[in-house]
């Protein structure tokens, strides 16, 4: 946004960081994105029995423009991978990714031609939730771990997508040279 670069470092930034992170972690808006059987557990997590609204994320957005968390819940096919990447890129910063289940994290039992062997080849993952499928409690645990991670973030850090494009640019430059 540019504004955060103008904030002087030190006490002021730390205080602002704490405040902003406190707000961010308590109002994560996940993208409604279910890919396979894991999505059933994700739905259950969001429904009344497990009620993830207790952690400030009761509403799933149907547009990536309004979301800041993508829960990859299930296997990603080779054909879905570009779609997933595009959705990720369409999300505004700051944004986070949870890889839910064995399939999303490493391909699971689907070690074959159709499935991406780990979604971290397509998007940067913040939290991996193991299990096949993980129980809602496990997903909630992953979400709480994400909260802890968000708490440690700083406004000064580069926006994720910008940072990543830069690395890609560097790599391209290196390849050219």
């Amino acid at each position: 946004m540019g504004l955060e670069e103008k904030i002087p470092e030190g006490i002021a930034l730390t205080t602002v960081d704490t405040m902003v992170n406190w707000a961010r972690k308590r109002s994560i808006w996940p993208l409604g994105f279910g890919l396979a059987c894991c999505a059933i557990e994700m739905m259950s997590t969001f429904a009344s029995r497990f009620d993830v609204a207790r952690f400030g994320m009761e509403v799933m957005r149907s547009s990536p423009r309004q979301a800041d968390l993508i829960i990859v819940s299930g296997r990603v096919t080779q054909k879905m991978a570009p779609v997933l990447r595009k959705l990720y890129e369409q999300m505004p910063d700051p944004k986070w990714v949870i890889s839910m289940g064995a399939c999303a994290s490493c391909g699971g039992v689907f070690n074959n031609y159709a499935i991406v062997q780990g979604v971290d080849r397509v998007v940067p993952v913040d939290i991996y939730v193991p299990g096949c499928p993980p129980r809602p409690e496990q997903l909630i645990d992953g979400i709480l771990k994400l909260h802890a991670k968000i708490e440690k973030e700083s406004l000064r850090a580069k926006p994720k997508s910008a940072a990543r494009t830069q690395t890609a640019d560097d790599a391209a430059k290196k390849a050219d040279a």
Binding site: Q78, K79, G107, N111, N112, Y113, A114, Q117
Partner: peptide, 22 residues
């Protein structure tokens, strides 16, 4: 069905089952 880059016909028995060595 399969992605453009994939060569061969994956349901043939000689295509190989595993995609990567675990």
């Amino acid at each position: 069905l399969t992605v453009e880059e994939l060569e061969g016909h994956p349901l043939r028995k000689d295509f190989g089952i595993t995609y990567e060595m675990p």
